[in-house]
């Protein structure tokens, strides 16, 4: 599903985001990307989103080399990937319903599809009663659930999460993780960059550890501190 080959990103100021990264992520996997700040986790997510271009190497998604994609193709790539950020990034002037519907409008969905899918997804994330609320009327957890609903409403095969629990209290963070697990169980590949060691340890999923831009460990059913939990 995702293949990263010899990927290096050097920023304009000379600092290295990721270095010689080689990874393969299969369809339906749940992968944690862990590491200290500046280790390259967010760069990896940004490169998958084509927010940044690689300096060297290639990335294949469903065997398509996205490194070769032009600017016009990026929006279509992003529609195949839901994305969730630490700071939610909801449109402040749109209601919960509109924020989620917006992702479908962009993907050229019909009004009927929007009316059918948005309530279903909102109900899945437990926001059906808040559909008319604006982001500033929601708690952090609710905002992240709204962002999650927006990310999955087009049923993308891949979900990228950049510290999705970073701004949430532990209980709310677990709500979000349970939702992510549920989404993953439905077949969506989830790639999540995080610092939350307790979550990583408890989930027992594949853990990719990064340090100074390099992948230093890649363990199936790993823990935050890199030991195998099997």
């Amino acid at each position: 599903m995702i293949k990263i080959a010899n990927a290096t990103k050097i920023y304009e100021n000379g600092s290295r985001g990721i270095q010689d990264v080689n990874l393969t992520i299969e369809k339906g996997e749940f992968v944690f990307v862990v590491g200290l700040s500046g280790s390259g986790k967010s760069t990896l997510i940004k490169i998958l989103l084509k927010e940044l271009d690689l300096s060297e190497g290639e990335i294949f998604i469903n065997e398509e080399n996205i490194t070769l994609y032009g600017k016009n193709q990026i929006p279509y790539l992003r529609r195949k990937m839901g994305v969730v950020f630490q700071d939610f990034r909801l449109l402040p002037n749109k209601t919960v319903y509109e924020n989620v519907a917006f992702a479908m409008q962009i993907a050229d969905a019909s009004s009927r599809e929007i009316r059918r899918n948005v309530p279903t997804v909102l109900s899945m994330v437990g926001l059906q009663k808040k559909s008319k609320a604006y982001p500033n009327q929601l708690s952090g957890g609710e905002q992240q659930r709204c962002a999650l609903a927006r990310a999955i409403v087009n049923n993308p095969p891949i979900l990228l999460c950049d510290e999705p629990t970073g701004n949430l209290d532990p209980d709310t963070a677990w709500d979000i993780m349970n939702l992510l697990d549920e989404i993953n169980n439905r077949g969506t590949t989830v790639v999540m960059a995080t610092h939350a060691w307790d979550i990583v340890d408890a989930m027992k999923k594949r853990v990719i550890s990064m340090k100074n831009g390099f992948v230093v460990r890649d363990i199936e059913r790993g823990g935050y501190n890199n030991e195998s939990l099997d």
Binding site: L49, E51, K71, N72, P75, Y76, L77, R78, R79, V83, F85, R89, L90, L91, P92, N93, F102, A103, I106, A107, R150, N154
Partner: peptide, 16 residues
Amino acid sequence: RNEILIMKYVGATNWF
């Protein structure tokens, strides 16, 4: 600009 940024992350084309 934040609104534009979010639209782009969600997959909006430049013309959209």
